[in-house]
């Protein structure tokens, strides 16, 4: 590998000794991942502790009560678990409704923005681009309040699920736009010309050529928009008014002290995330392997 000259230039280093910088880096990685995962592990473990303040040090026995709730022999609820927490369940419903709305808003907006930026070469393109990505770079709370007061001032629309949808859609559409732009830049424009030349109408070009090409990106954009919407707190908190989502409800519950039910929700989130991440990784590796084979 190395040339003789380079070997001479390099400080002599016996081959079999340990490379301390490598060891240090590996130890560092280990500590970093411990830092990332230890708090999450603690959160997960405490969900199974019978102690009604979430803890792992003060262990009062294994229980699933926080996931299921518990009723005594007479049928009275003794321990309130996840299914009995109506506001969490309703919050999840609100979150899903908002996420669905955000997908419906942000995919057409993102796609339109991407088409304008990639296909319409005007002198204003850079300005347009800056404007269209600015929601990503704006603090979430500013986006939340400005949307909330704007719709109330001009359309008498009270803060709620709809304003939250709009506020989230504003910046999630920018993420979708960036994904669509990346895809559109790889498109062979000649295909659309070929279709036109063969007599296709502009609708048919869009439906048979452009849309199928964009389909994978539409799918990933929908997933990303869904996740971003479900997870969002800062923007939602300022735009939701008297209503609530799963995440803002977790937030308001945390203000009043800790409850193991939140740990239970945490466990559900962790399980979902880990499963999805593992599936995603495996799918990606399979695709890479297929590409390498082709």
């Amino acid at each position: 590998m190395t040339t003789a000259t380079a070997d001479r230039l390099r400080p002599a280093r016996p081959r079999l000794t340990v490379d301390w910088s490598d060891v240090a880096l590996n130890v560092y990685i280990g500590v970093f991942f411990l830092y990332l995962f230890l708090p999450l592990l603690i959160m997960v473990l405490a969900a199974f502790n019978a102690n009604d303040t979430p803890s792992v040090t003060d262990w009062r026995g294994f229980t699933l009560d926080w996931f299921t709730g518990r009723t005594d022999a007479a049928g009275n609820l003794v321990v309130k678990g996840l299914p009995q927490e109506d506001r969490f369940i309703q919050g999840l419903g609100h979150s899903l409704a908002i996420a669905a709305g955000v997908i419906v808003i942000s995919i057409p907006l993102g796609l339109s923005g991407a088409l304008v930026l990639t296909r319409l070469e005007t002198r204003a393109t850079t300005l347009l681009y800056t404007l269209l990505v600015s929601p990503i770079l704006t603090p979430g709370i500013v986006l939340g309040v400005s949307t909330m007061i704007f719709w109330r001032d001009y359309f008498a629309l009270e803060a709620g699920l709809l304003t939250t949808m709009i506020a989230q859609g504003t910046f999630i559409a920018s993420y979708c736009m960036l994904m669509f732009m990346a895809r559109l830049q790889r498109q062979d424009r000649v295909l659309e010309e070929a279709a036109l030349d063969l007599g296709a109408s502009s609708f048919m070009v869009f439906r048979r050529i452009t849309l199928p090409f964009l389909m994978p990106t539409i799918a990933t954009s929908a997933v990303i928009a869904f996740l971003q919407s479900i997870e969002n707190y800062n923007t939602t908190f300022f735009a939701i008014g008297g209503s609530w989502t799963l995440v803002t409800e977790i937030g308001s519950r945390m203000r009043f002290g800790l409850s193991p039910v939140i740990n239970a929700i945490g466990v559900v989130f962790v399980v979902f995330t880990v499963t999805a991440a593992v599936i995603w990784t495996l799918a990606r590796r399979r695709e890479l392997a297929r590409k390498a084979a082709a």
């Binding site: 995962f37 995440v247 977790i250 929700i265 945490g266 989130f269 880990v274």
Partner: peptide
């Protein structure tokens, strides 16, 4: 792949739950 999983999982878990874990500590 393993390292990326290790980064993606905590990244994807809700911000509030990550905060909650620390409040417990």
């Amino acid at each position: 792949a393993l390292l990326m999983l290790g980064l993606v999982i905590p990244y994807a878990i809700n911000e509030l739950l990550r905060i909650f874990a620390w409040v417990m500590i």
